[in-house]
């Protein structure tokens, strides 16, 4: 079924099925952390998650119909935001903690061992508290994640060729489907019409906060790499270099 003919309920059920499995770091964590050991664990986990993220994106109805160039651009623009929203979702029921994976959980204070990371941890914890206050539902979470992916490159590229224009139009229709799905998810919560509108506004406004933290995180990771605190390799290196050179 094409996404344009799916009901919002059907669309949500497809993106719920696309959710990646729980991922484990699978390392013996030696505490206390050093700056290098914590950065290594964080980047190892990110690298594993990135591979699953590609698979997740491909399962979002309509994504693989976009041009390959658009698929690449979207993923390279939003990967850290997607990782951060996943982290926020896993941490939402654990105040003061960041649940990177079931076997890699950090308290705020543990961020002290990595220069400059505490500020990012605090921003992530603040976003997590806000989602906790709003009692974010799983259906809403999956819609927000798809919105981050599809919206990530919208204002930084302008289509030149007919093919690019076609892909751009497909992207806009796909965003319509995701927004419809989010509106539908909110409508299931038993709120008044006005409260539903406000909730939609509050949830989507949080995305700008996530973009901001992601930019901070990207700068931080680039600095850590430049200072040789951590070796960045494989897919993560490709994504990071893409971000450093591609803007």
């Amino acid at each position: 079924t094409h996404h344009s003919s799916m009901s919002p309920e059907e669309f949500i059920s497809r993106i719920m099925e696309a959710e990646p499995p729980e991922i484990y770091l699978m390392e013996d964590l030696k505490k206390p952390f050093t700056q290098a050991s914590m950065m290594m664990s964080l980047t190892n986990l990110a690298d594993k998650e990135l591979v699953l993220m590609i698979s997740w994106a491909k399962k979002i109805p309509g994504f693989v119909e976009l041009s390959l160039a658009d698929q690449i651009h979207l993923l390279k623009c939003c990967w850290l935001e997607i990782l951060m929203l996943g982290l926020i979702w896993r941490s939402v029921d654990h105040p003061g903690k960041l649940i990177f994976s079931p076997d890699f959980k950090l308290n705020r204070e543990e961020g002290q061992c990595v220069e400059g990371i505490m500020e990012i941890f605090d921003m992530l914890l603040a976003a997590t508290s806000r989602f906790r206050e709003l009692k974010l539902q799983r259906e809403e979470y999956v819609c927000l994640k798809a919105m981050i992916l599809l919206n990530s490159n919208l204002c930084t590229s302008s289509p030149q060729t007919a093919e690019e224009l076609e892909s751009r139009n497909k992207l806009l229709r796909l965003l319509d489907s995701v927004i419809d799905a989010l509106v539908w998810a909110i409508s299931k919560l038993g709120l008044s019409t006005q409260q539903q509108t406000l909730r939609l506004g509050h949830l989507t406004m949080l995305l700008s906060h996530i973009r901001h933290v992601s930019n901070k995180g990207m700068d931080h990771l680039s600095t850590m790499k430049r200072k040789n605190v951590v070796l960045v390799y494989d897919l993560l290196l490709e994504m990071l270099d893409a971000n450093m050179t591609g803007g």
């Binding site: 591979v51 698979s55 690449i72 490709e238």
Partner: peptide, 24 residues
């Protein structure tokens, strides 16, 4: 072509039908 070269792994994963779990 440069986009494909710059993002070899990403490009491969997007085009590959093999389970990314196997590739990981």
């Amino acid at each position: 072509t440069s986009l494909k070269e710059k993002h070899k792994i990403l490009h491969q994963l997007l085009q590959n039908s093999t389970s990314p779990v196997d590739l990981a």
